[in-house]
Nucleic acid binder design. Structure first.
Length: 562
RNA sequence: UGGGGCGUCGUCAAGUGGUAAGACACAGGAUUUUGGUUCCUGCACUCGGAGGUUCGAAUCCUCCCGCCCCAGCCA
């Protein structure tokens, strides 16, 4: 679209694929896959992987499969597969008809296992889990071979068949690859590839009581699907020798596994375990709480798919552990919303203003621009009358030097309306300002003075008699530490107690009465707000603040405090 | 004397022997009926450190230092 797009940096994975294309390693094909386990909700870290996998495929004219890695019936549920599909779709990616499940390959996987046994490359072990752990050795000492390691092929075949038939209880036997108990790589010390689990699977039901392990399943699933580049995170680097061993030993089609660093974001956590803790510990209202770094959370907060995709492109892909600044994500949202979000006026903390020289009982309509960045968005009419609300923060009785909003004796502009000058301040018995009385200049209708005089500030406002009331939720970062849980602290101690502020009597311009759930607006001078997809109702909207506008004044005021 | 990986600006990140891209952040300035947007300007004589090879090194070699991952019948 725009010619001034930020060029996306290249990365080592793209370079690898380009080399492979040049050498025609895969016959010009690029097939990737996004392989979530359906045991939880997707978060922004998954978005990086999704964007990488679908992005690389698209860039090279290839395809990306959606494959559920569902080999552990104890943890997986259909609820999760549904939410994952919804999220990937919402992010804007299309797997067309290539929706696969590792469980669809159970039969073939079983066949391959039989082959490994026949070749003498796998054996049924009858050691207990604890014994297997002891035999495995330690990081610095080699393991010991199981006494069952040299069972004859026929016995292995018989036992494995009986495992499948359900003759044994959970844990009685496992199938292990026969590799090298002395390997420095623990994954190669005769890894378990099948275990007995008499548990119903969300897709295969009671058909199977033995389930293949990840290392064995993943490489073969990739192979079966004709994947060219199997992109995964760094912690699987140690597993690559096993990935390669299985495919090489079985002499089947052999994709290339490439590992990249997972995403870390400042001021939040992205591990499934910690996310669960936030939900179950009641720190947030659920997986889709707008403060959560889940796709569902970002969506409810008002982040757009486009902004998340742009973010994923800009952070790049590399192998080094890193923590991306949350500010970049916020920047991507502002950049996107600045172009598309219609502007409206809403007063969050109302202060009443009475225009003393404006006739009582009368009102008029003023024309307001919907989006200065997009002329096609047109204009709308906003009602104006004698009693208005302005933001409390926009008035100071005794303003500091750099404050150029409303103050006693000072003149400012009400956006799209008139210049007003503060003439009187009304206080309650405690000395709190409850009302400001101003005079308006009828000649400045629309916001310009015919005599050319200038004002230093333009304020947003809402006509008191026409305003609709709304609940507005102000969200701030969930943690008050850039690296929650740093050092010895428990990460929950870094939860920001002020991450949510609920404002009840907010006054919004009437056009917002019909705001659609999930619609995005810029409340001028405040930020971008999203009508909550769960709680917002016509005539009674509820808005979530997605992100504030950049705010020079806030910085100046902050400096003044220090 | 286990194995695997990684160290380039405050934060990400290009760079693959020819003399340090870009983005965010930050700091100035211009424009502005959003202290928004936009637009200029500044921001690594230096690439974890020390040696070496070379006319020339972030890129090659050697040694050292630091950080991350691995001992699930989880993925």
């Amino acid at each position: 679209m725009s010619q001034t797009e930020t060029p996306t940096p290249s990365n080592f994975i793209r370079n690898f694929i380009q080399e492979d294309m040049k050498s025609n390693k895969w016959g010009g094909r690029v097939i990737t896959r996004f392989p979530p386990e359906p045991n939880g909700y997707l978060h922004i870290g998954h978005a990086k992987s999704i964007s990488l996998n679908f992005g690389m495929a698209a860039e090279f004219g290839g395809k990306c499969n959606l494959r559920f890695d569902d080999t552990n019936p104890l943890k997986e549920e259909v609820e999760y597969v549904e939410s994952i599909k919804e999220d990937v779709k919402w992010l804007g990616f299309d797997w067309e008809n290539r929706e696969f499940y590792a469980s669809d390959y159970f039969h073939q996987l079983y066949g391959f296992a039989v082959r490994l046994i026949e070749q003498g490359d796998a054996y049924v072990d009858s050691l207990s889990p604890e014994e297997i752990r002891k035999y495995r050795g330690t990081l610095t000492e080699p393991g010991k071979e199981s006494p069952y390691r040299d069972r004859p092929v026929t016995e292995n075949l018989d036992l494995f068949e009986r495992m499948r038939a359900g003759e044994f209880e959970d844990g009685a036997h496992v199938l292990r690859a026969k590799i090298d108990m002395a390997s420095g790589n623990l994954n190669m010390r005769d890894p378990t590839i099948y275990r007995i689990r008499k548990t119903a699977h969300h897709r295969t039901g009671d058909k199977w009581v033995i389930y293949p392990m990840y290392d064995y399943t993943h490489c073969l699933s990739d192979s079966l699907e004709g994947i060219t580049h199997s992109l995964c995170t760094l912690e699987f680097e140690d597993h690559r020798p096993l990935y390669d061993w299985v495919l090489r030993t079985l002499e089947v089609y052999h994709p290339r596994q490439i590992e990249f660093a997972r995403l870390n974001l400042s001021f939040t956590v992205l591990s499934k375990r910690k996310l669960i803790q936030l939900v179950e510990g009641g720190y947030v209202s659920g997986w889709d709480d707008p403060r959560m770094p889940t796709i569902q959370g970002f969506r409810r907060r008002g982040f757009t798919p486009e902004s998340i995709r742009t973010f994923c492109e800009r952070i790049g892909v590399a192998k080094r552990d890193s923590v991306v600044d949350l500010a970049l994500l916020e920047h991507c949202l502002r950049e996107d919303l600045n172009k598309r979000a219609p502007r409206v006026m809403g007063v969050l903390n109302p202060l009443k203003v009475v225009i003393t020289n404006y006739p009582e009982g009368e009102s008029e309509e003023l024309e307001a621009v919907n989006n200065p960045e997009d002329p096609a968005a047109g204009t709308r009419q906003v009602p104006f009358s004698r009693e208005l609300y302005i933001e409390r923060d926009d008035f100071m009785e005794d303003p500091p030097k750099k404050f150029f909003r409303l103050a006693p004796g000072r003149e400012v502009r009400l956006r799209y309306a008139y210049f007003i000058k503060c003439e009187e301040v009304i206080k309650d018995e405690d000395g709190a300002v409850v009302e400001v009385r101003c005079a308006y200049d009828p000649a400045t209708r629309g916001g310009d003075a015919p005599d050319g005089r200038k004002v230093k500030a333009t304020l947003h406002w809402v006509s008191a008699g026409h305003a609709i009331e709304a609940e507005v939720r102000l969200y701030d970062r969930l943690f008050n530490h850039p690296n929650p849980g740093a050092g010895k602290t428990d990460f929950t101690e870094h939860v920001n107690p002020k991450s949510l502020t609920v404002l009840k009597g907010c006054k919004l311009e009437p056009s917002l009465a019909s705001a659609e759930p999930e619609s995005l607006h810029q409340f001028e001078r405040l930020g971008y707000f999203c009508a909550d997809r769960r709680d917002s109702r016509p005539g009674r909207p509820t808005f979530n603040r997605s992100v504030t506008l950049r705010d020079q004044w806030a910085k100046i005021a902050q400096k003044g405090k220090k």
